[in-house]
Amino acid sequence: MPLRPDADTADDLLRPSFADRAPARATGTRPWRLSSQAYVAFFGGLLAVTTIAFVNARRLGLAAGPLALILLAGFGGLALEVAVLSTMAEAGGAQLRMVARVIALAAWGGMYFLQRVADRRYHHFRSGEDDAYAGLLVPGLLASIGLGLVELLLVTTALDLA
């Protein structure tokens, strides 16, 4: 059965674009809503939201480039957070927390834009088996508490060394 047109006669528009693409696997892992990730950024901080966004981006099938950019936004944001907080020796706890939250939310904004086209594609082409988003309540809380504490430890250690 000839399922490929003759490459010499087909015009450029009708050349295959996905010839090497593996079939999408039904992993049963649905993505999370992008807007829900903002809560993780606000309550859990950079490490938590980077982890959640990275896992979600993989579920959405993002390529290696955007995945790397999500990690860059997360760890770049963490470095920025340490740098900014190290200049605020006189500031109170509330101000420090506010700065950390603003940086985490800014990083989430970048992660949101990296995921949003793939998220809409998932939403538009979803099949009967994957017609809903997964709940972020439990994983979001776990990430916020667990990785929030890890981030606090990392940042205070870095500030002590600075």
Partner: peptide, 14 residues
């Protein structure tokens, strides 16, 4: 399987 879907429709377009 988008590769197979594309191959089939390109065969029809041929």
């Amino acid at each position: 399987d988008l590769a197979a879907a594309e191959a089939a429709i390109l065969a029809a377009l041929a």
